[in-house]
């Protein structure tokens, strides 16, 4: 289990324990994180699971994959340098404590 924090635009923090191997879109759905819908089930078709990694927590998620990168250029909430689609982030020990800002 790792700990994941989601941060809303008002600064409020929502924390959950996530089993390793589970992607962070599914984790967000299981924990009812606002604005994350994962409509396509993680098929990288909908871009409704966009998050911004808050690197001030000291944890980086790495670069997006090629197709994800293309999608991120077009997300409605606007891309930032640390934008990722959370369906492509899989819970692993390296991501323990990661902070994800959600936008809407």
């Amino acid at each position: 289990m790792i700990t994941v924090y989601w941060v809303y635009p008002d600064g409020s923090e929502h924390k959950a324990s996530v089993e390793e191997g589970v992607n962070l879109m599914e984790a967000a759905m299981a924990n009812d994180i606002e604005s994350i819908y994962g409509e396509c089930g993680g098929s990288m078709a909908c871009a409704t699971c966009h998050v911004e990694v808050d690197e001030s927590c000291g944890i980086k998620a790495g670069e997006p994959f090629a197709m994800e990168n293309e999608m991120l250029d077009m997300v409605e909430s606007g891309r930032t340098p640390t934008s990722r689609l959370s369906c492509q982030l899989v819970a692993s020990p390296e991501l323990d404590g990661i902070r994800l800002k959600v936008a809407w």
């Binding site: 990288m44 078709a45 871009a47 197709m67 994800e68 293309e70 999608m71 250029d73 077009m74």
Partner: peptide, 9 residues
């Protein structure tokens, strides 16, 4: 085909 960004556009 294999152009997800263009699809979003």
């Amino acid at each position: 085909i294999n152009r997800p960004g263009e699809h979003m556009l």
